[in-house]
Simulated assay, not measured.
Amino acid sequence: MMFFVYNLSIYSPKNKACKELNDFIVQFNHILIKDECSLDALRCSIEAKINEINSAHPKLRPIRYDWNESLMRIDASIKAGSGCPDYLFVMDVCCVQSVFQFSEANSQANAIATLGICRVCGCTENDPCYHPDHSTCWWADEEHTICSHCADPDIANDPITEHCINSKGGHHEK
């Protein structure tokens, strides 16, 4: 699964440490994050930078790092005297729903490839393609946007290949 930083709100720096963090964090605005491992690495990089800044400025109030998994939000703040935190930045991350990719083989040039649906034939894991020699299809790419039977021209053009067997009444087992 891929992710995207769709919102990065950076607030006025309170001091030199906050400015240093803001200068660091701005590089992550509107970036694509390839997978969950990369998202974890991004989170660790931000947390490490905050720890580095806190170590370099021991007399200032420490910057607090937070990851809210349910909101998919990373933020940093300083606990203010009133108990309410002063936020330095808020970064919202979302899952990439689909990817647009032009394909000359696809007659619908403006179609959006949806993860989990083959962009050529429209099959899914619950409605696969079937070929007697190759059984049911599987995903041929990491994004799950093209099935193995459409990715291989020999199988795709073979007249005995059946696409979307469940929705067309096929009775082949996966």
Results as ranks from 00 to 15, higher is better:
Phe3Arg: 14
Asn7Arg: 12
Leu8Met: 04
Ser9His: 14
Ser9Ala: 14
Ser12Ile: 08
Pro13Met: 01
Pro13Leu: 06
Lys14Cys: 06
Leu21Met: 05
Leu21Asn: 00
Asn22Ser: 14
Asn22Tyr: 04
Asn22Thr: 10
Asp23Gln: 07
Phe24Gly: 02
Phe24Cys: 00
Ile25Asp: 03
Gln27Ala: 09
Phe28Thr: 01
Phe28Met: 10
Asn29Tyr: 04
Asn29Lys: 09
Asn29Trp: 02
Ile31Asn: 07
Ile31Leu: 13
Leu32Phe: 13
Leu32Trp: 12
Ile33Trp: 05
Asp35Asn: 14
Asp35Leu: 07
Cys37Ala: 11
Cys37Arg: 15
Leu39Cys: 09
Asp40Ile: 10
Asp40Cys: 08
Arg43Cys: 07
Arg43Thr: 00
Ser45Glu: 07
Ile46Ser: 02
Ile46Thr: 02
Ile46Glu: 05
Lys49Ala: 03
Lys49Ser: 07
Asn51Ile: 03
Glu52Asp: 05
Glu52Trp: 00
Ile53Ala: 00
Ser55Ala: 01
Ala56Ser: 04
Leu60Met: 07
Arg61Cys: 01
Arg61Val: 03
Ile63Gln: 00
Ile63Phe: 08
Tyr65Ala: 09
Asp66Ala: 13
Trp67Ile: 03
Trp67Gly: 09
Met72Gly: 06
Ile74Tyr: 02
Ala76Met: 00
Ile78Gly: 01
Lys79Leu: 05
Gly81Gln: 14
Ser82Glu: 02
Asp86Tyr: 06
Tyr87Glu: 05
Leu88Asn: 06
Val93Cys: 04
Val93Pro: 07
Cys94Ala: 14
Cys95Ala: 15
Cys95Trp: 08
Cys95Met: 13
Val96Ile: 15
Val96Asp: 01
Val99Arg: 06
Val99Gly: 04
Phe100Lys: 13
Phe102Glu: 11
Phe102Leu: 09
Phe102Gln: 13
Phe102Pro: 01
Phe102Ala: 15
Asn106Ile: 11
Asn106Phe: 06
Asn110Pro: 09
Ala111Trp: 01
Ala111Lys: 08
Ala111Leu: 11
Ala113Arg: 08
Thr114Tyr: 03
Thr114Asp: 13
Leu115Cys: 09
Leu115Glu: 08
Cys118Val: 06
Cys118Ser: 10
Cys118Pro: 00
Arg119Trp: 02
Cys121His: 08
Thr124Glu: 05
Asn126Val: 12
Asn126Cys: 14
Cys129Val: 03
Tyr130Asp: 02
Pro132His: 11
Asp133Lys: 15
His134Arg: 09
His134Gly: 12
Ser135Trp: 10
Thr136Gly: 13
Trp138Phe: 15
Ala140Lys: 04
Asp141Gln: 11
Glu143Arg: 15
Glu143Leu: 05
His144Leu: 14
Ile146Leu: 03
Ser148Phe: 04
Ser148Gln: 06
Cys150Thr: 03
Ala151Gly: 09
Asp152Ile: 10
Asp152Gln: 12
Pro153Tyr: 08
Pro153Leu: 10
Ala156His: 10
Ala156Cys: 14
Asn157Thr: 10
Asp158Ile: 05
Asp158Cys: 10
Pro159Asp: 03
Pro159Glu: 04
Ile165Glu: 03
Ile165Ser: 06
Ser167Arg: 10
Ser167Lys: 12
Lys168Pro: 07
Gly170Glu: 02
Gly170Ala: 08
His171Lys: 15
His171Ser: 15
Glu173Gln: 12
Glu173Trp: 11
